[in-house]
């Protein structure tokens, strides 16, 4: 399998604050890799460095076989980038936005490509509508169409589904998988756990450092986390009490249930012993991705305070 992205030791600081620290990653071609991590963890900065929008302070890397520092132009030609904020021209129509993107990338058969994209998007009837007047879900689909109009080999998506309804998100992810099936490499940053599970691979970043890497199963297994699920009236209010025990690394309510996790299963069990009584019912459970991420995050000192 060919490597689409191979970066080593990337660093980036803004105003003396190190946003990305010794970041290394390899991404295979045709894979969808999810970048997860808390806000301000350097996901956007990393994506921008990989497509030549930011120059790393140090470190090296290639994307699609081109150097991310000296050959960023070649990368840009072959990459589609969808920014966090809707960043198409709101005062241009749907069709004009597509045409602009096609021209700036010197594509051939512009009319044909734009017509195809409009057809696929289901926006053929609304092609004369100003992009700014589209609803959130449509804006996002248009942005994806613009980012993939030139048939890129690499697609970078920065929180593409923020503020989009579940149905539109599902359609969006179906499209991403269709594109990946054709060999497109996708890097997507997200906060949604269900989206993380839709990715082939996960890279968990917190405060500029890569903390976990692999498939969802590998990441969960790698965390070596013991999790108990508690049920019963008032169990969700025990979190504060339980957290006083150092064996309890995480206690988070899930609706009416409570997930309690810790790295040491035996100590965790002892910590829970006093609560093994009515009306509470406890059961050992597989940690979810979210449990793992909250666990990973709690181990990293927050350098943003």
């Amino acid at each position: 399998m060919t490597v689409a992205i191979d970066a080593q030791g990337l660093n980036k600081s803004f105003g003396g604050r190190r946003v990305v620290k010794d970041f290394s990653i390899r991404v295979d071609e045709g894979r969808i890799t999810g970048f997860l991590g808390p806000n301000g963890s350097g996901k956007t900065t990393t994506l921008r460095m990989l497509c030549g929008l930011l120059t790393p302070d140090s470190g090296t890397g290639t994307a699609l076989g081109f150097d991310i520092i000296s050959e960023s132009w070649e990368i840009k030609r072959r990459t589609g980038y969808m920014t966090q904020k809707f960043s198409l021209y709101e005062d241009l129509t749907v069709e004009e936005n597509l045409q602009f993107s096609a021209r700036i990338r010197s594509l051939d058969r512009i009319g044909e490509r734009v017509a195809d994209a409009l057809e696929q998007l289901g926006l053929a009837e609304r092609r004369k509508q100003l992009a700014g007047t589209l609803s959130g879900g449509w804006k996002q689909r248009l942005a994806l169409a613009v980012a993939t109009l030139h048939e890129p080999q690499l697609l970078l998506l920065d929180e593409p589904t923020a503020g989009v309804d579940p149905q539109a998100r599902r359609t969006f992810w179906d499209e991403i998988h269709t594109l990946a099936a054709r060999g497109l490499t996708v890097l997507v940053s997200t906060h949604y756990m269900d989206e993380a599970e839709r990715c082939h691979d996960i890279a968990y970043i917190a405060y500029g450092e890569l903390l976990a890497r692999g498939t969802a199963e590998e990441v969960i297994a790698g965390a070596k986390l013991a999790t108990w699920r508690g049920e019963g009236p008032g169990v969700d209010r025990l979190a504060g009490e339980l957290l006083r025990d150092p064996a309890v690394e995480m206690a988070a309510p899930f609706g009416l249930a409570l997930h309690v996790s810790g790295g040491d299963a035996d100590r965790l069990e002892r910590a829970l012993a006093p609560y093994q009584r009515s009306p509470f019912r406890w059961a050992r459970t597989e940690p979810t991705l979210e449990d793992v991420f909250i666990h990973l995050m709690s181990r990293v000192p927050d350098n943003f305070q």
Partner: peptide
């Protein structure tokens, strides 16, 4: 508006 970022990501 952020369109500059999209523009810079093109060649």
């Amino acid at each position: 508006r952020g369109t500059m970022e999209s523009l810079l990501a093109t060649p």
